[in-house]
């Protein structure tokens, strides 16, 4: 495995400093510091409600933090949003797509929105629809896509303008194994070509297979971070994760009626 050992590269792809977000009375993210080295495949792990989506939303400029800084490829996303946002691609959580467009229309929309030339958009959109097996002449509205197809079209929208950093929220959630394998393959090629991927997940198998670096987030703080080898040590990632998060591993006599 080719794990970049340089942890303190001069300009990390994504740098978070002291990010804090409070919703009403709940402290969703309580001071997150994180460096994602350029060229790494970075997995942000955490149980449901740990603050993964909130953290990533603040990192890409979708949610204003109460405190802290987020720098994307050296540009502060809140001080200089235009420069920072132009260099990244984002797959937001859930179905945050303009889903009353067809897949092709949606790609054309994202391409033009990124200021790309119409000819380039045409060529890349057709290619992406084809490679992601969405059907180049498919005129179904995205709202009628299956969950896996929605993830794939969302990913295509994020990659269309060839950004140097991809921030993906749960890209493997609700995706069937065939589509997941395809997405994995595309992302691995992207990283091999010099891109950086940050994604959130709670599927340990995928993370162990893909990531060069991981961080474990629980209750709004980073509990553990490093290269995959450093974090995992001699054990399986799942054991480490459950231990760090402090989950309950076995039930006693409670659910006897089941």
């Amino acid at each position: 495995m080719t794990v970049p050992q340089q942890r303190s590269s001069p300009d990390p792809a994504l740098a978070l400093r002291g990010l804090v977000k409070r919703f009403d009375t709940k402290l969703a993210v309580a001071g997150v510091d994180l460096d994602v080295p350029a060229g790494s495949f970075f997995g942000l792990l955490g149980p449901n409600g740990a603050g993964k989506t909130t953290t990533l939303s603040m990192a890409v400029g979708l949610l204003r933090p109460d405190a802290g800084q987020a720098r994307l490829l050296g540009h502060d996303v809140w001080a200089d949003p235009a420069a920072a946002k132009a260099r990244i691609g984002v797959l937001p959580d859930g179905a945050r797509l303009f889903d009353r467009l067809t897949g092709t229309e949606l790609l054309a929309y994202h391409g033009l929105l990124r200021g790309m030339d119409a000819g380039v958009v045409d060529q890349r959109a057709a290619e992406l629809m084809d490679v992601l097996a969405l059907g180049a002449d498919n005129r179904t509205l995205v709202v009628d896509y299956s969950a896996g197809m929605k993830k794939k079209i969302g990913l295509a929208c994020a990659m269309l303008h060839a950004p140097r950093l991809l921030v993906l929220d749960e890209p493997f959630e609700a995706v069937d194994p065939v589509s997941a394998a395809l997405i994995r393959d595309i992302l691995q090629r992207y990283v091999a070509g010099g891109g950086t991927v940050v994604f959130s997940s709670h599927v340990m198998a995928v993370v162990e297979r893909l990531c060069s670096h991981v961080a474990i987030l629980a209750d709004g703080t980073i509990r553990l971070r490093g290269t995959l080898a450093e974090v995992r040590g001699e054990r399986s990632l799942e054991d480490v994760f459950v231990e760090v998060v402090g989950g309950r591993t076995a039930t006693g006599s409670e659910l006897a009626w089941l």
Binding site: E105, A108, L112, L113, A126, N138, D144
Partner: peptide
């Protein structure tokens, strides 16, 4: 699902009508 007839037009032409510029404004 709302099946539509397959279109032979290029992606940008499917989204943006001919009388709109092929820019951000046109796409929006």
């Amino acid at each position: 699902p709302r099946e539509r007839a397959a279109s032979a037009r290029r992606p940008v032409a499917q989204l943006v009508p001919a009388w709109l510029p092929r820019t951000r404004f046109g796409a929006l």
